[in-house]
Design a protein around this nucleic acid. Structure first.
Lengths: 162, 162
DNA sequence: GCGTCCCTACTCGGATACACGATGTCCGAGTTGGGCGGG
DNA sequence: CCCGCCCAACTCGGACATCGTGTATCCGAGTAGGGACGC
């Protein structure tokens, strides 16, 4: 049970994207250089974000990616759902209906107790992720970082959008 | 991000194991037949449970598996940890230290905000699983099942331990 | 008849294949911006 | 000098390989139980 690397990558990226000026974008290559991750694979993850409506893409010279909506309207759950898909981690295959003592379908009106317990736990997980917006994370980062580092980042973005 | 099938299988199995008389066990083949799952692969999962101290194994004729401790001292979290391992789902690779604007190690005394947020969510997930003992689940199943079904199961166990 | 030894059947246990999804890569589609030529 | 067209560079977008983990399987190790043999 592992989350894909794309979750970490895109979380860091979305926390930085608000720094790009309106109307401009950051290319996949630039983002990949910034975090030292393979650009072609990062592109794949950015596609997922675009389809989920989290970022917008602009083609052609000077194009790239930018956030599709205000950062405080993007939660960590949105990211995870976009990258990993909406499928729950626990897959109930209804094995209680199998074998010599299997329940008949008509006796399965109540959901499987085990599946329910896992669903409840996942609800708690998703609720925790949904309650954390990327804005709150970006703010924490900004508060804890040194002023020089923030200037460093702003300068890099400036050079990219040239 | 998917949990292995072993989690579902062993959860159902552990909920049934208390029915076996003290001193006896159920063989992997019997359990595999009961739930219609591949016995050789189920054996692998039972090994993990044994190493985690959840079940005991007895070799030789009439042997098999039985619970190693009272069922109310086994939580769903114990099962998940035994099968999936203790590794968190979110893997922080510290990419904030990468690239042209990467933080230096000495500036990383505070943990990564993103990793912290995911760790918090996983704590909620694990807490929910830890609070559900297999005893409570087995009881719910028993309460909701029909008397015939319970007798059916008891008879099957009786035939297995012969 | 009784005790002991051996043998066999049964079960676990770890080493060994296979498959599918995550990871990583490549080339074509589409768009913008600027350069170049003509007016 | 100004306008418009064309070209080329740049970027996204989806199709194509590769690798690792989950899934599945097999055969050897170990044990208990019973039967046979001897006393």
């Amino acid at each position: 049970m592992q989350l894909g690397k794309g979750v970490e990558w895109t979380a860091h990226i979305c926390a930085m994207l608000p720094l790009v000026p309106p109307g401009r974008g950051l290319s996949v290559d630039a983002l990949a250089d910034y975090f030292e991750v393979p650009s072609a694979y990062l592109a794949k993850q950015m596609q997922l974000l675009r389809r989920a409506g989290i970022v917008q893409s602009v083609r052609g010279k000077g194009g790239g990616y930018r956030l599709a909506r205000p950062i405080d309207e993007i939660s960590l759950l949105d990211l995870v759902t976009a990258i990993e898909g909406p499928t729950p981690a626990f897959r109930c295959t209804e094995i209680r209906q199998n074998g010599p003592c299997g329940l008949k379908r008509k006796d399965c009106r109540r959901p499987c107790e085990i599946a329910s317990a896992f669903a409840e736990a996942e609800r708690a997980y998703r609720a925790a992720l949904a309650s954390r917006s990327l804005a709150s994370i970006a703010q924490e980062v900004a508060v804890n970082a040194s002023p020089e580092h923030l200037l460093d980042i702003a300068g890099w973005v400036q050079r990219q959008v040239g």
